[in-house]
């Protein structure tokens, strides 16, 4: 007995996933390299984020919690670059803290590069606190006594001796904390940081969904979501960064996925009709 050949619809439904991966790969490469650029519509969370930073006065202190590593570089790097650029524009002082060894190195090097380009001095206007193994313990410690909790910066200088941190006794001396992270660290900031501190959030797109409850209740005042949020923020700042090209690539990848979902459903429908016709 001859084996039944698969119909085109059945072949579409059982397509080898490697073909799908190849199509997506080609799609990403084409639109990453293509000079096509689309403006973004500014979403309310990004606008709120921008407005909060705009309220800062020169010399105000900002804490940046940077916990991302190479894996989420495409989403978190444009966010951090745009945020640091905005803070420098407002002449705010900022410190960076990390809960991961890799993120310590990555954020330190990124901040060094971005601040050097704009003439910001390490130790005078910004500092990096290095790596802390436990965020909750660190936050609780910084709320009571920051210099004794952190003790030294990433270069080994005592915190109490740094001009950027002159007069700083605790986290209450800060105005804003910005959490740039691919993991769920923002609840720790919400729970344990002083209530006068404004919390702003820069998550990856996957983590953004669970932040809407905090946005709604006002516990987070603004949010930049992934590469697309970075593109919106760059647009507000009027700068060119990595957010725009990445967000455009994501646009066409989403379009491709939607097209294939519709195709898959169409194939399923046609397959059912064919099966019914054949008896």
């Amino acid at each position: 007995m001859q084996a039944r050949t698969q119909s085109v619809w059945q072949r579409m439904l059982s397509v080898d996933r490697r073909w799908l991966y190849l199509i997506l790969f080609v799609n990403i490469v084409i639109f990453l390299l293509a000079p096509l650029r689309m403006p973004a519509s500014i979403s309310p969370p990004v606008q709120k984020f921008y407005d909060e930073i705009e309220k800062l006065q020169p010399g105000d202190l900002v804490m940046i919690s940077s916990n991302w590593s190479a894996s989420t570089l495409a989403e978190n790097q444009p966010q951090l670059e745009a945020v640091i650029t905005h803070l420098m524009r407002k002449q705010a002082r900022f410190t960076i803290i990390s809960i991961e060894a890799q993120s310590r190195d990555i954020s330190y090097r990124l901040a060094e590069r971005v601040t050097k380009e704009k003439g910001y001095q390490y130790g005078e206007q910004w500092a990096h606190f290095g790596f802390v193994p436990n965020l909750v313990v660190a936050i609780k410690g910084m709320v009571t006594d920051l210099p004794n909790t952190i003790k030294q910066d990433v270069r080994g200088t005592e915190i109490s001796k740094m001009p950027a941190l002159r007069g700083v006794k605790s986290l209450s001396d800060y105005k804003v904390v910005i959490d740039v992270t691919p993991s769920g660290t923002v609840p720790a900031w919400i729970s344990y940081s002083p209530k006068n501190l404004t919390i702003l959030y820069c998550p990856t797109s996957v983590m953004a969904a669970e932040a809407y409850t905090y946005l709604d209740s006002g516990q987070i005042k603004g949010m930049i979501t992934g590469a697309k949020g970075a593109q919106e923020y760059e647009q507000l700042l009027g700068i060119k960064g990595l957010g725009a090209p990445f967000a455009n690539t994501i646009s066409f990848s989403h379009l491709l996925i939607i097209a294939f979902i519709l195709l898959g459903n169409f194939a399923m429908l046609m397959n059912r009709l064919q099966a019914r016709r054949e008896g």
Partner: peptide, 11 residues
């Protein structure tokens, strides 16, 4: 949501 959150959606 997929098409709405990307710049292409706004276009």
């Amino acid at each position: 949501v997929m098409i709405g959150v990307v710049p292409l959606g706004a276009q």
